[in-house]
Simulated assay, not measured.
Amino acid sequence: MLKILFVAVALMVSSQLMAQEHTWKQYAEKYEEIIKHFPEINTGTHYIEENRSLEGHPFYLSAKIELGTITIGGFNFEAVPLQYDIWEDWVISFSSVFNQRMILNHLKIDRFTLVDGSTFVKREKPSGFLFHGNGFYREIVKGEIGLYAKYRKQKKQESSTMELVRSYDEVARYFFDLEGTLVPIPKKKNLYETLGLSKKLAKQEIKRSGLRYRKNKEAYLQTLVNMSNHD
């Protein structure tokens, strides 16, 4: 019985390893396709995750590398293995040459889309903003007035009864795109004037949607921006 169980486990592990190897091979082929056309996208730097002592991970979305799309020099590449480290503001892919994750050259990237559909674009630094990093902002609404978000992770310390727990804390900062420039979201009382909206009508729409500024900030802002673009 133990022998049969051992063989079953061995076959399962072997099958998982073969599947993983096949997946990495597919990833490598996609990476090689990009390198063939844009060799300068490869920084030559291996990606090593820092702060391993922290609970959680430094990535947007998840710690798993998934297939997405990336635009370089106006050329779009689909089904490319991508990860977005928002601690360092790095876009990461997988290289067959080194058989590990590599940091992509942020200067060559126009935009990229992750597996969940989140699209990040390169934007100019907003005036006075300290956490611009490499300039990747999530595009939430694109229109006459746009809505963008900048994500980053920082260290969060929580004292438990037994020990000091250290983990990642994700922070999002929102911006309006006004005439091609990203500007910080103003105070809530100034939102309607900034977007050229009737305060009465905007509040009625927000009430119908059941949104609260603090609890549903992104959806709240998105609703107002869409109203402004359709006026």
Rank of each mutant, 00 (worst) to 15 (best):
H57K: 10
K3C: 08
R111M: 08
N190Y: 10
F59V: 02
S93Q: 10
S14C: 12
T181D: 07
F131K: 07
L61K: 08
F112P: 01
M227G: 08
F129Y: 15
Y151V: 14
F6S: 06
L5D: 07
V7P: 06
F129I: 06
G180F: 07
N229W: 05
L191F: 11
F75A: 13
N76R: 10
I109G: 02
T43E: 05
V183W: 02
I145L: 10
K199S: 11
Q20C: 00
T119I: 05
Y84A: 01
F176D: 05
V97H: 09
K207L: 14
K203E: 14
D85V: 00
T71A: 12
V9W: 14
P184I: 03
A79I: 02
P58V: 04
L201K: 08
H46M: 10
G56Q: 14
P126E: 03
H57R: 09
G196M: 07
K125A: 14
E40W: 01
E50W: 00
R152W: 13
A8S: 08
I72G: 00
A79P: 00
E88V: 00
I4A: 10
E144N: 10
Y60W: 11
R173M: 09
T71H: 01
R166H: 08
L114N: 09
S15V: 02
D85W: 01
T113E: 08
I65H: 06
S159N: 06
Q157R: 12
E40Q: 12
E88W: 02
K156E: 15
I72P: 00
K30C: 10
L224E: 05
K155V: 15
H106Q: 04
K155C: 11
L191V: 11
Y168T: 03
E170C: 01
F94S: 10
E124K: 08
Y151D: 08
A19R: 01
Y174R: 03
F131M: 05
N76T: 15
G128M: 03
G56R: 14
R101Y: 12
Y47D: 02
L211R: 07
L82A: 03
R212L: 09
Q20V: 00
F59Y: 14
D110E: 12
L61R: 06
D89S: 09
L164Q: 12
V7G: 04
M1F: 13
H46S: 12
I70Y: 02
G143V: 13
V171W: 00
V91F: 04
K217I: 03
L221D: 09
R152K: 12
R111H: 05
V183K: 08
T45S: 12
